[in-house]
Write a protein that binds this DNA or RNA. Structure first.
Length: 435
RNA sequence: GGUCCUGUGGAGCAGUCGGAGUGCUCGCCGCCCUGUCAAGGCGGAGGUCGCGGGUUCAAGUCCCGUCAGGACCGCCA
């Protein structure tokens, strides 16, 4: 077997403090150069963080002067401890080898603590803007949250599934779908894995999915995307929606726990302290929520201003960043929603507000074939487009329910981002299809 | 889809009552500086004031249209 015995293993910036006195190789992007008369400092950024390299040799210095910020370089040198270095360690006597041509500088300074470019400018130059620690930190938190979502559900015997993103008919009442051509037949991008995750409850009892969903709704707000990542859960053998809410509570706790455990540096970069999830998240019925928010009693839904008011109320009265609103009117919920047996005009459905924004929708679903026929008939909708879905309920489905978390909204609320686009790598919305 | 706001060198802004493309912070180029920390000092380059039309002796500034961007609302996760 051939092995490169002479190669020095690459060390990440954060590991340098364990290599004092050693000869090391680091590699990354030239984050910033500070050129003084007889000494030059190179700040090299890698996936883990920043490393300082000190150049005194005139030949190396001359070579470094021609390298612009963001050029990819490899540095070999000796690690020394130095209290005046930003991290307490630095690499001296370096050899600097560019791994590519000098980089064309991005239109904003990545080495500054805050990105001064406006959001549209950042999004236009997303491939480089995302390199800024403040932007990449949000994406690391997002990744940790998804890992926590999976871990929490895996621990409760859920099975991860993957459902089609191209479908023959829309999942939720008609209009807002992206149409495309499927070998000459009309097809649509899936608005939700709703039908498929319900059907898979008939296979595994408990399922979840992490995947993109597509909404052709002309919403132009800081909390809407045409494509977003939906964290979907569905479970069988529930008594009602409250069993689903318990799983949601534990899932959120798992997500935030994973964010703390796996994205501590990212949280520090953003100065964010994740909230605790109460052992029991406070819950109010929709009719009560209207009163708290000061909305008219005949209001069919909560407006964003009402949700903000409820968020403040939950924080004030219960010290909770989370609030369940249960029992939304059946008229505002999709046809597969299970009604409240005691008050049939209201549903066994809920929303979860996180700091005053709708983060999750969930509830108990219908599970009897006849109920589906009646629900569609009551809404004047034909059964035929839903045949493949509804038919499954003739073959035995347990009482079940589930929920869907909007990942971008979760991260935006958690990090304090004003716009979900700040925590989305390449957002797709009404106006943006590139990059 | 409705309402409101904003378009000024590469980035972010200011520009008053209509009076010469004026100004600020940063970047860029050149020079200087043994230890920088968003380095510092001196000098320089870079603009069809989004686009089109109108009013005026005179428009970045006022009016109309148009394009682009943003916020709120509707609706949603």
């Amino acid at each position: 077997m051939i092995k490169e015995v002479t190669a020095v293993q690459r060390i990440l910036s954060t590991q340098l403090s364990h290599q004092i006195g050693e000869s090391v190789r680091i590699a990354g992007w030239l984050h910033r150069r500070r050129l003084l008369k007889s000494v030059a400092f190179l700040i090299v950024r890698d996936a883990a963080g920043l490393a300082q390299v000190v150049v005194t040799d005139p030949t190396v210095r001359a070579a470094v002067e021609s390298l612009s910020e963001e050029t990819v370089v490899e540095v070999t040198g000796t690690v020394i401890a130095n209290p005046t270095a930003p991290a307490g360690v630095e690499v001296v006597e370096p050899a600097v080898r560019p791994l590519g041509p000098p980089a064309v500088p991005p239109p904003f300074d990545l080495y500054r603590p805050v990105l001064t470019a406006t959001l549209p400018t950042q999004l236009d130059h997303a491939p480089t803007a995302l390199r800024h620690p403040s932007r990449s930190a949000a994406l690391r938190i997002s990744a940790a949250a998804v890992a926590g979502f999976r871990a929490a559900l895996d621990a409760r015997d859920f099975v991860e599934i993957h459902t089609p993103k191209v479908v023959a008919s829309s999942t939720e009442s008609g209009a807002n779908v992206f149409a495309l051509d499927w070998f000459g037949r009309p097809a649509y991008l899936a608005q939700s894995p709703q039908f498929y995750k319900q059907l898979m409850v008939g296979v595994f009892e408990r399922v979840y999915e992490v995947g993109p969903v597509f909404r052709a709704e002309p919403h132009d707000t800081v909390r809407h995307l045409a494509q977003y990542t939906s964290l979907d859960v569905e479970l069988g053998f529930v008594a009602d929606h409250r069993d689903v809410m318990v799983v949601l509570r534990d899932t959120l706790a798992g997500m935030l726990g994973a964010v703390r455990a796996r994205a501590g540096a990212a949280l520090a970069t953003l100065g964010v302290e994740p909230p605790e999830v109460p052992a029991e998240i406070p819950a109010v019925h929709f009719t009560e929520a209207l009163k708290i928010a000061g909305a008219p009693a005949d209001e069919p839904d909560l407006a964003p201003a009402h949700e903000r008011a409820l968020g403040e109320w939950a924080c004030r009265e219960h010290g909770s960043d989370f609030l369940f609103v249960t029992g939304y009117p059946m008229a505002k919920r999709p046809f597969y929603t299970h009604p409240d047996p005691a008050r049939p005009a209201y549903s066994n459905g809920f929303d979860l507000l996180f700091r005053g924004m709708e983060l999750v929708t969930g509830g108990q679903r219908l599970h009897r074939y006849e109920d589906y026929l009646a629900a569609l008939a009551a809404r004047g909708e034909p059964v035929e487009p839903y045949a493949g879905y509804v038919d499954a309920f003739r073959h035995g489905m347990p009482p079940h329910g589930g929920f869907a978390i909007g990942l971008e909204r979760f991260v935006a609320r958690l990090t304090g981002a004003a716009n979900v686009r700040e925590v989305t790598a390449f957002p797709r919305d009404l106006h943006r299809l590139t990059p």
